[in-house]
Design a protein around this nucleic acid. Structure first.
Lengths: 252, 252
DNA sequence: GTTCTTGACAAACAGTGTTCGTTATGCTAT
DNA sequence: ATAGCATAACGAACACTGTTTGTCAAGAAC
């Protein structure tokens, strides 16, 4: 594909307008984020670049650096702005679990809508105001459910991490043209019953449950696990990783 | 930094040896993966490129395309080769939960050791032999724990996704120089008690538990949740995402 | 009316993945 | 032993990327 196609206001040379700077949008932080998000939803995270954002704003890449420190910061700003669309409960009617499910589902949908937002949610630190608002809401819901504060704090982290991971996995697989029958389907489906008996026997279950059902079940498991969690985070900090008994790897 | 530094056998022009091809490693798929993994552990995923791998092998980038279709395939091959190092239980002594914890901890450690392997585990489809071996082992452990087969199938997915997500989050944060006091610590620590009361009250708990403790607790929660899970994946497939009641977003 | 700050931007730098066309090598068949 | 050939190896190029530098013009402050 050629390199045309993107910028539409590219008259050969409008020398006449170079004089008075006719309108030439003042180029703010806001429209940079907006255009970047727009480009993201249309071309995905891989197709997003500072140069394309600049081209869409009819300017050069260097101009953006006045408002944005670097690409990573733009990513973080984009993620937080996207989180503004997460639907939060407005009142306290209905069970707290239903409301929690709704918030998480909305969070997932937002991350789904922008291809690559899931990866961003995992790779950038969500410290913006909308991310904090989401955390605050989730904390509130877990506390309403009678969960101990310390457990709730870690539980929120677990839940948001899970949603981001599901979104990241899905969006990356979608980015590389995962048309109904991905390579994992082939690999798991054609696995030898002798070498991997369990995988072979459970191959239908391993591959079943597109999108919604699987995510809903996962959230259910997480909440149940949090409800049945060790009442407080164990005091033996950092011991798990080091307490791995030496075991030898075996040939597959 | 200059572009020297990497390739050591770079005599100006060894015309004499061009005759008999003295040793000039035959350049196989294996050593490409090995050198790529070597480069990954030393320079991280961002510092890994086909050109650097080629330079380390004293050749040009085009030569690698004989053995590897593209960068994504190399990534997948690297991930699977790295998974060979995951320590699996050799016998059936000890409780299944302890063995499960050990396998997951080893999995996490392997993903930790190669900076960027966590991101790879989320973005590439784990269909290689070592990934299948890991899945098979985890299935075996869950079934030994008396978990229903269908639940075990989805549970394995949940567990591996969680490990990969933790690794991905950690490794990306580590990549951008996260020295003890990251920006999230500042943001959460300095949050206003009026706007975000729960976050403010729980800020210590939100930030506590480095590495090991948090991961161990998360796995514990997941297993407990799987044990208390809905006995079988609900039949109402794909309804969760669509059953989100319309709720209005509120200002943060 | 003259400074001075600052947003805008062209050009360049050092990289990236991937492809194309050509060479040279090692193996096979004559 | 010689000829033919599949193919590994590779130099060069293409179309990109993020980021920096230095210059220029417009608006604000004095």
């Amino acid at each position: 594909m050629s390199r045309q196609q993107l910028q539409q206001p590219q008259e050969p040379r409008p020398i006449i307008s170079r004089r008075s700077r006719p309108a030439k949008a003042p180029l703010s932080r806001e429209i940079i984020i907006t255009t970047a998000l727009d480009l993201l939803t249309r071309e995905g995270l891989a197709g997003l670049s500072l140069r394309k954002v600049a081209a869409a704003l009819d300017t050069g890449p260097a101009s953006l650096y006045v408002y944005v420190a670097n690409l990573a910061e733009l990513h973080a700003l984009m993620l937080d702005r996207a989180l503004a669309a997460v639907a939060l409960p407005t009142d306290r009617e209905g069970g707290w679990r239903d409301r929690l499910n709704a918030v998480l589902a909305s969070y997932l949908r937002v991350l789904y809508d922008g291809p690559g937002l899931g990866q961003l949610a995992l790779s950038t630190i969500p410290a913006g105001p909308y991310a904090l608002r989401l955390t605050e809401t989730l904390l509130d819901l877990l506390l309403e459910g009678g969960i101990q504060p310390a457990v709730a704090a870690w539980g929120v982290d677990l839940l948001t991490l899970h949603v981001a991971a599901v979104a990241a996995e899905q969006s990356t697989h979608r980015a590389q043209g995962d048309d109904t029958l991905g390579p994992v389907t082939q690999a798991v489906g054609a696995v030898s019953a002798a070498d991997y008996p369990h995988i072979h026997a459970l191959r239908d279950e391993l591959l079943s449950g597109g999108d919604g059902a699987r995510f809903g079940w996962g959230v259910e498991v997480l909440i149940n696990g949090i409800l049945h969690a060790p009442d407080l985070p164990p005091a033996r900090a950092g011991s798990v990783l080091l307490s791995v008994k030496p075991m030898e790897a075996q040939e597959p």
